[in-house]
Amino acid sequence: MSDIFYSLVERQPAGKDIVFLLDGSDGTRTGFPAVKDFVQRVVETLSVDDNKDRVSVVQYSKEPAAQFYLNTYTTKGDILDTVRGLRHKGGRPLNTGAALQYLRDNVFTASAGSRLQEGVPQVLVLISGGRSFDSVDAPASALKELGVLTFAIGTRSADSKELQKISHDPSYALTVSEFTDLPNVQQQLQSSRRFGKKIHLMSSCLFSPAGKDIVFLLDGSDGTRTGFPAVKDFVQRVVETLSVDDNKDRVSVVQYSKEPAAQFYLNTYTTKGDILDTVRGLRHKGGRPLNTGAALQYLRDNVFTASAGSRLQEGVPQVLVLISGGRSFDSVDAPASALKELGVLTFAIGTRSADSKELELQKISYDPSSALSVSDFTDLPVPRNSSPL
């Protein structure tokens, strides 16, 4: 399973490591002040002084050049002063592929201040004004494999397909008319849902308060009766790592077979102890057939809502963990797409009976790499606090 799952659901230092990769080639000279302004606006929202968030800026054209690394500055003021003073690099051609590889080898590393091994989310924001002269395919894939969430923002002069390749998911690419439109992006990210998944996820990564809303969707159909204790144990292990008592994290559990049933909502319990007690006491639902599509739609309409305790509108990351033991009797396509459009990060874990051939788990997951297959529920991964799986 993707390292991002553990970055989101395990105990970790609140915050993120954000790297800005800025196009400094000849064609971006006039728009560079607006690029710097955008970076400053984002940095202003971060928690740098208490070491929750770390920032790095790399500028590139023919070759990349680190302006500063993730561990160079420990105060927001120093970062802002340096960004204001950045000089446009200049040069050509634009080698985005080489720049991405440079980040992989020299910036997203422990020696440069990356906390990847501690489970801290790694975020890359690329701002580009043109098409790359070299290939971006292999370096972009390398960053995805590392677990970096890459968002690519480009002007109309950039190659939209290339931006989609670079982004962690094609929908995380964003196009603006020109760099002078960048100052408006943050406001759009924070206040608008009409742009769909790419906007909400970017907003969650860059501007959200510490914490997350996690919903567990558990297969309670007849075929999972013997494995259900292992499922409950997995949920308990994850909950143990969360920060519930200070309202950073919220948890909901829904069990389903033919129909879904909420065991509790995101705003039902405010203490970790109450959640753990309830999970331990869960009884297997039973029933058939397994209607995963209906369950996903139920979550969309009844659980990821403000009335049920979801903080989606506040920019808090929304995480869904599906644990399934079989193939769905109904279609999952439309409900899964609806959750993606809402901005929910869905991770699907299934046994070998859960339709790996038809790629149902991959369809449900927000990204195909976020699906995991295990032999049976006793093999569910054990969350580890200090490192990703």
Rank of each mutant, 00 (worst) to 15 (best):
residue 1 M to T: 14
residue 2 S to E: 14
residue 2 S to P: 15
residue 9 V to C: 14
residue 15 G to D: 05
residue 16 K to S: 15
residue 17 D to L: 13
residue 19 V to M: 11
residue 22 L to A: 10
residue 30 T to G: 00
residue 33 P to C: 09
residue 38 F to E: 05
residue 42 V to F: 04
residue 45 T to V: 04
residue 48 V to P: 07
residue 50 D to E: 14
residue 54 R to Q: 15
residue 54 R to G: 12
residue 55 V to Q: 07
residue 56 S to A: 15
residue 57 V to Q: 12
residue 58 V to G: 13
residue 83 V to W: 07
residue 85 G to V: 02
residue 90 G to M: 06
residue 95 N to E: 06
residue 96 T to C: 01
residue 107 V to R: 06
residue 108 F to T: 07
residue 112 A to P: 08
residue 113 G to Y: 09
residue 121 P to C: 01
residue 123 V to G: 00
residue 125 V to T: 04
residue 125 V to F: 03
residue 130 G to I: 01
residue 131 R to Q: 14
residue 133 F to M: 09
residue 134 D to Y: 12
residue 134 D to Q: 13
residue 139 P to Y: 04
residue 139 P to N: 12
residue 144 K to F: 03
residue 144 K to N: 08
residue 146 L to E: 08
residue 147 G to N: 01
residue 150 T to G: 12
residue 151 F to D: 04
residue 152 A to K: 11
residue 153 I to G: 08
residue 158 A to M: 06
residue 162 E to W: 00
residue 164 Q to F: 00
residue 164 Q to C: 02
residue 174 L to I: 11
residue 176 V to N: 10
residue 180 T to W: 00
residue 180 T to P: 00
residue 183 P to F: 06
residue 184 N to S: 13
residue 185 V to N: 11
residue 189 L to W: 03
residue 199 I to G: 11
residue 199 I to M: 15
residue 199 I to C: 10
residue 204 S to L: 03
residue 205 C to R: 13
residue 206 L to S: 03
residue 209 P to Y: 00
residue 216 F to A: 07
residue 216 F to P: 07
residue 219 D to R: 04
residue 221 S to V: 01
residue 222 D to I: 00
residue 227 G to L: 01
residue 228 F to Q: 02
residue 228 F to Y: 12
residue 236 Q to N: 10
residue 236 Q to V: 01
residue 237 R to Y: 00
residue 247 N to K: 11
residue 249 D to F: 05
residue 252 S to R: 02
residue 254 V to T: 14
residue 258 K to Q: 13
residue 259 E to N: 13
residue 259 E to G: 03
residue 260 P to C: 04
residue 262 A to E: 10
residue 265 Y to F: 13
residue 267 N to P: 03
residue 272 K to H: 03
residue 272 K to A: 05
residue 274 D to S: 15
residue 275 I to A: 04
residue 280 R to Q: 12
residue 281 G to F: 08
residue 290 L to M: 12
residue 295 A to G: 10
residue 300 R to T: 01
residue 301 D to K: 06
residue 304 F to W: 01
residue 304 F to H: 06
residue 309 G to R: 13
residue 312 L to N: 03
residue 313 Q to E: 15
residue 313 Q to F: 08
residue 314 E to N: 09
residue 317 P to W: 10
residue 317 P to I: 06
residue 320 L to Q: 04
residue 322 L to Q: 09
residue 325 G to A: 09
residue 326 G to T: 07
residue 336 A to F: 04
residue 341 E to Y: 04
residue 344 V to N: 09
residue 347 F to C: 10
residue 349 I to Q: 08
residue 350 G to I: 07
residue 355 D to L: 02
residue 358 E to R: 15
residue 359 L to S: 13
residue 361 L to H: 08
residue 363 K to V: 11
residue 363 K to F: 02
residue 364 I to R: 10
residue 365 S to T: 08
residue 366 Y to R: 11
residue 370 S to D: 09
residue 374 V to E: 02
residue 376 D to K: 13
residue 381 P to N: 11
residue 381 P to T: 07
residue 383 P to V: 14
